[in-house]
Design a protein around this nucleic acid. Structure first.
Lengths: 280, 280
DNA sequence: CATGAACTGTGCGAATATGCACAGTGGAGG
DNA sequence: CCTCCACTGTGCATATTCGCACAGTTCATG
């Protein structure tokens, strides 16, 4: 009777999120039969159905929604705890999680590689995503952010690099369209809506209509391929590639990057080592 | 690597609370060896020690304190969830948790017994304690409270009984000390500090010095035994026993009782049935 | 309407975790 | 200083759980 299992809750949370038992099993890295059994047990203990079973998946009941809330809250709390525990150690070892906006790896990785060589006990987790990671939810130890200075309380923020993206074109494009003097005579290849706050994107939106946009993609490789194919002009960081020609560069396009850590972890040797390596 | 177990956290929480592996094992109803293994696994995954091992028990490290916080928060969230799930059902069955101040069982139990007979699918959990249970933490479905009207938001409060404790004495005591006319000529047997807000206790504190107190005990049976032995006068509810004599009763000693439920559960048939049974 | 894909659900053998017995440890008390 | 006691820690047999294979169901698609 009093037998209680938090792992059953964890399993149910995964099912609630993915909508299917199979998907949850994949996330949890167990067999789907195990997930079914855990949920059966949990429902029996709670005395209520959490899901409406269906041959194509599970949908949440009212009770299931309550579980989703409670489970998600606990998960956030646990991952925050794990990050703080693994972050507050006095030694520079164990896992270190660094998050960044996409497209920084050429800049970031050499420095992090040097850090790893210096401290062989470190395990690096470098994750990029368009969404911002929440340091207080334990999703990262150090975050690299672009744009306005982050103002969240409990975050320690220090300025890092100022980067100026430049406009690039392929040789074939230039041979066909001639040199770039008036931007409105050209078409552009740009990232998705999540990059709209970037300086060069604001400049584009302010100066040219939508008709000048040839392609939108959130995939950097796809954009690069498009530029190489001569579909239009695109912004890259200087030195990112060597087979394209820089055709334009404005001081307005300069963007500030920030190094961000959580106040609880900022003083720890490990986080300090990461920050130093990045500043290096 | 990605293997994670919330049950390990649960085990560590129990150890953090009890201070010993054995105590935790007792609470969790598993063997103490199991608890040791779970904690070893959890610490290995977190890459940090949660406890300082000792032949006499485990003491918390800084990381352990973080775990205690996170684990306790999750546990509270889970039990709240369980209460809401088992409470919001449309049918009157499953577990129902009623909490009350001590000494009410003669009053409460007959009504709850009638409720149970009416709904055989119910499992009753009737818990009394000096501390107040938190309905929003899922510790109870219905609470009986004494004193000032509870004002917590999200609580649905309705007045229940007004009880007036009376002063009782044993025959032996009266034979020795004569009838009670001036209270200051007598000594008293009273409950502990947690009952100080009760009306008759406030009256006592206001009218008589500490010298008139013969005995303090939070155990009702012990107080009753003391009164029966003639150690002094004590307050009881009328009808509680039949071998003692009521010697004094003041309207000031009347105390209001409240029936309290959480707003999320109050409309459910099960909680409504409990409230009706208690009011009946 | 037939086919296929993706999912849920269950019996059975294998892997895993559990309980037990016993050894080891350190502090309290006389 | 010694004994006792409550606790932690570990091999081993066992019980429980897990993964696998396969059956059954539903829905999308041509």
């Amino acid at each position: 009777m009093e037998t209680e299992s938090w792992d059953d809750i964890r399993a149910a949370l995964a099912v609630a999120r993915s909508g299917t038992v199979s998907g949850a099993a994949q996330v949890l890295d167990v067999h789907h039969a195990t997930v079914i059994r855990r949920i059966d047990a949990l429902e029996a203990r709670l005395g209520a159905r959490l899901f409406q079973r269906h041959a194509r998946g599970y949908t949440l009941t009212e009770a299931g929604r309550l579980l989703l809330e409670a489970g998600a809250a606990a998960e956030a709390r646990f991952s925050q705890m794990a990050a703080r525990i693994s972050g507050t150690g006095e030694r520079i070892e164990g896992e270190i999680t660094v998050t960044s906006v996409q497209g920084m790896s050429d800049l970031v990785m050499p420095r992090l590689v040097a850090l790893m060589r210096q401290h062989p006990g470190l395990r690096l987790n470098y994750t990029t995503d368009t969404r911002l990671f929440r340091l207080d939810a334990g999703e990262a130890h150090v975050a690299i952010r672009a744009g306005a200075k982050p103002v969240e309380p409990d975050y320690v923020v220090s300025p890092w690099l100022r980067l100026a993206a430049s406009l690039y074109a392929s040789e074939g494009y230039l041979a066909q369209h001639g040199p770039v003097t008036d931007p409105s005579a050209h078409r552009f290849i740009i990232p998705g809506a999540e990059s709209r706050p970037a300086p060069h994107m604001r400049w584009l939106a302010a100066h040219l209509p939508a008709a000048n946009i040839a392609m939108i993609s959130n995939d950097a490789d796809a954009r690069l391929a498009a530029i190489r194919a001569g579909l239009g002009l695109g912004w890259l960081l200087p030195g990112e590639v060597d087979d394209l020609t820089e055709v334009m560069s404005l001081p307005d396009w300069e963007s500030q990057l920030w190094l961000v850590s959580h106040v609880d972890l900022h003083r720890s040797p490990k986080v300090q080592a990461v920050l130093k390596a990045l500043r290096g």
